[in-house]
Amino acid sequence: MDRFFTHSATTHGITVRVAVSFLPDRSRADSARWFWSYHIRIENHSDSAVQLLTRHWVITDGRGGVHQVDGEGVVGEQPVILPGKSHDYVSGCPLTTPTGRMEGVYRMMRDDDELIAVEIPRFPLVAPAVAD
């Protein structure tokens, strides 16, 4: 596995890898705003093309507050990923606490019209000042 991607999960032959970065230049502790970017790589190791239709995120802040996000595709796209290929995108997440976590599910359609749920692995959001 690429060392850049520190979290991964495989479901139905689809591997989702995540790399997360804290963005100090977009964060302001005095305003209770912390911001992370995350890079997702979706790899198709199955024998079937898949199209990413929807996403479901569960975002939990450091106080245990849960925010759920549902939407079509990712960053405005509903990519088709052929066998042996991958799709990358980058997005971001603000929190009002310096720690939290994200996890979720992609809903995908295989080329045989089967709908599948693909796990997005849980990954921590930790601002460096509170990492210890």
Results as ranks from 00 to 15, higher is better:
M1Y: 12
M1H: 14
D2T: 12
R3K: 15
F4W: 12
H7C: 05
T10F: 02
T11V: 00
G13C: 08
V18D: 05
F22C: 06
D25M: 15
D25A: 15
R26L: 14
S27D: 03
A29P: 13
D30L: 04
S31A: 14
W34N: 08
S37I: 10
S37L: 12
R41M: 13
N44H: 05
H45E: 14
H45D: 14
D47T: 09
D47F: 04
Q51N: 03
L53N: 11
W57I: 09
W57E: 04
I59D: 01
T60Y: 02
T60E: 13
D61A: 10
G62P: 00
G64R: 07
G65C: 14
V66I: 15
H67A: 10
Q68W: 05
V69N: 09
V69Q: 10
E72R: 15
G73K: 05
V74L: 11
V75W: 00
G76P: 03
E77C: 08
L82Y: 11
G84Y: 01
G84E: 01
H87S: 06
D88L: 08
D88H: 10
D88G: 11
Y89C: 07
Y89V: 04
G92D: 03
G92P: 01
C93P: 04
P94M: 06
L95Y: 07
T96R: 12
T96M: 10
P98W: 03
T99I: 08
T99P: 02
M102E: 07
E103L: 14
Y106V: 02
R107A: 11
R110V: 06
D111L: 03
D113V: 13
A117H: 09
E119V: 14
E119I: 11
P121R: 01
P121T: 08
R122G: 15
R122N: 10
F123Y: 12
P124V: 08
V126Q: 02
P128I: 06
A129Y: 08
A131I: 10
D132I: 12
